[in-house]
Amino acid sequence: MILHPGILSLLVGSFIVVVMMLGSCVLGIRIIRRWNPDSASMEQLALERRTYLISSVMNFVLGFELLSTFLFIYTVDALRDIFVGAMCATGSLNANPVGWYVLLLKIVIFFLAAVWIAVNRLDQRAEDYPLTRRKYQLLLGIAPFIFLDAYLTTAYFLGLEPNRITSCCGSLFSETGEGVAAGLAALPLLPSMGIFYGTCLLFLIVGLAALRRPGAGLNYTLALLSPVLLVVALASVVSFISLYFYEMPTHHCPFDILQLNYGLVGYPIYFTLFAAVLYGLITGLAEPYKKIDSLRPIIPDLQKKWTGRAIFFLMLFMAITGRPILFSDFSMIGY
């Protein structure tokens, strides 16, 4: 095993999170079975108090998963020198393909945890805590992902062999290669831009319409568009957006923009994108809860706030990614 400080810190952190989730699951099961909002008994009060503990744990888990995603990317990047052929994080991830699953899983967990926290906030605003059981059932559903993440992270690092020859982003994302990544890199420029800006525009239009005339249809549409936006945006980052930051027609790597020498621009890019997708998602996910009496007066205002934030972050994302496209001397058109 590679005794690298970054790997140790990720494994220590994963272990801590697994232990905390196990504890939360045990408490969650008890809450699901014994929760009775009509009771004023001491047991109900004790359960109510436990919910604060689980909320604190989930906040911690969300924070950890978010930070550990970046730590993971930086660690695999730092490991690149150990592998023949690896020039950046992509190479290290290719050295043991489990790595890509770890990354994907961390992104999924981020969204699941964020959705849970949103549901939790919603639940706590109604006097009868109507979503409590559902919330902890959701928690039990999220836990396996976290356990899987810890397992795969360990498996990834344990399965790394320094002598394995791997390929770097230059070949993974090369236009002449095979596979999804290469396919993304090889997409022609104008259609890619068209799909990207089209999706963004559609999202903005639906969002603005939902603000002016709120309704279930528009909210659900926004929620459905959110994952589409995520996929299209990430594909576009690989396909053409990153090129403008690297000013290199063949450099498609989605990780290098997180590096210091590119001004850490990857952070605002991914942060604004994820925020926009998240807020769009929870706007629609809250819709079915309007059926609940105690939540009906609360949800519409929250949805408005979330839709507004989704629009704001998407516009910020478009501004950040569009800046080099519009204003730099580098141009891909005609390449």
Binding site: P37, D38, S39, A40, S41, M42, L45, E48, R49, Q124, E127, Y129
Partner: peptide, 22 residues
């Protein structure tokens, strides 16, 4: 604190089973 039995009303509103936050 909450009573073990019975009801309490404050300004006409039943607060007996309200969660601690409220």
């Amino acid at each position: 604190s909450r009573p073990s039995m019975g009801r309490i009303l404050v300004n006409g509103r039943d607060v007996t089973k309200l969660p601690e936050r409220f």
